[in-house]
Design a protein around this nucleic acid. Structure first.
Lengths: 237, 237
DNA sequence: TTGAAACTCCCCATAAATAGCGAGGCAGCG
DNA sequence: CGCTGCCTCGCTATTTATGGGGAGTTTCAA
């Protein structure tokens, strides 16, 4: 790792505002001589947050076309633990190919590398580099910098979590043990009658737990409550 | 990073059995000249999996006394993103102090450093180093090796996920675009009527998508289907 | 071009979930 | 000693979801 990169890490660790993060990302882009550097996350209620060097046009376009819901980068990273080079992903679907072309038209390079990063309470973030290079050059670049990039991604996420106090406050409601068990049973496919039998309580009592879970999670219905509980990482299937 | 550590990383990446992981952990302990090195994960049903250099007696003791349910290291790491030195944790409760003493009596060193690692579908693992050193020496050791340890922890988790095919296999059924949209709407709390309106289709049509999604996902009901889709990472709230 | 898969729509009957009203016992906390 | 939160149980009525049937178009790939 060069001294320049150490400087950037130091600047990152000293960051106190979103603008600081943005500045570090821009310095990083210049340091690596790539097209774009981006850090962003998607949380359990669908709120987004991010910083990076994408043009405002592309960001607007991305949101307007709701690419978030079909972006192979997002889905690919969400299902994996390890970072991924964009060309390894599945771009075979028509909307994906259209998005890819759209991205190229908006100034993105043909190569990308995205690191999935997960934090407490189901937090999920992505750290991305985008460049215009041949496959060979890109593979070499990744090979040379993968570890540094992972450290950088984690430092960005650490900062972002500090900003948002993710999970420190009551942002993820605490469910009681019985409520968690109820949610877990439902997530595993049991009907209310089955779940009640599993927990050795009356179906009515189970219903009370489901209701209180729903209210705590701010959910519209049982499915929503289970989805939020899963997404927040307070239950797993 | 020394060549010796590079060798260990190479060995780790070539590992194909649990015994290989165990061997790498032992080499790692010797390399760092610490008391213990451990990698393990914990899932929601309390199933464990791990490898490390703790004595069989301590592992048995830990399980027998159900320390898993109150271990400050587990709880602390579960709530944080960043690695933690054990002395930073809250050991004020009586059971925690008793466990601490018990651990010392079973050959653990007085210093520990644990890295929380998260993978897809709520997977959660810990990579731990334990040693007998003064606070100053330990702080210096961590300062010198934090980045290498993070890389190592992630490589261990990558291997463990490969062993268990944790979500990385191709066994996730492919839903059609409309089916995915239907699941996504339901996961975000819409009723069938609302979701149908959102997708500009009749409620009957939406029902067809939900049914087909359920069958493809092998789910017992809608909530189960949404839970599986979320867990598989094919939809994101 | 043929066929599979996706997409769209409809009816009917039953099962399940939701909303509202209750109630009491038990633990921990200030 | 109240307060709050958790755990447990009951009733009624309404809304919503599910399971079974069928049938037509479009779209994309073999």
């Amino acid at each position: 790792m060069t001294n320049r990169l150490e400087d950037l890490l130091f600047t990152l660790q000293a960051a106190v505002t979103l603008e600081d993060l943005q500045a570090v990302l821009e310095s990083l882009r210049d340091h690596y001589n790539v097209e774009h550097t981006v850090y962003h996350w998607v949380n359990s209620v669908g709120e987004r947050y991010g910083a990076g060097t994408y043009s405002a046009e592309w960001v607007d376009r991305y949101l307007e076309k709701d690419y978030l819901r079909m972006d192979p980068v997002i889905f690919g990273c969400f299902q994996r633990f390890t970072p991924v080079s964009w060309k390894e992903l599945d771009w075979s679907s028509k909307p994906a190919r259209e998005m890819w072309q759209d991205a190229l038209d908006h100034g993105l390079g043909n190569q990308g590398y995205t690191i999935p990063i997960r934090g407490p309470s189901g937090q999920f973030a992505l750290f991305t580099l985008n460049a215009s290079l041949s496959d060979e050059e890109w593979a070499q670049f990744i090979d040379d910098n993968a570890r540094d990039l992972m450290i950088l991604g984690h430092e960005f996420n650490k900062k972002a979590l500090e900003f948002e106090q993710w999970g420190e406050d009551g942002s993820v409601p605490a469910l009681s043990p019985r409520e968690l068990e109820s949610m877990s049973c439902l997530a595993r496919g049991m009907s209310r009658a089955q779940a009640a039998a599993e927990l050795n309580i009356s179906e009515h009592t189970l219903r009370v737990y489901i209701e209180s879970s729903r209210h705590k999670l701010g959910a519209m219905n049982t499915t929503h409550a289970v989805a939020r509980a899963l997404s927040a990482g307070i239950i797993i299937i």
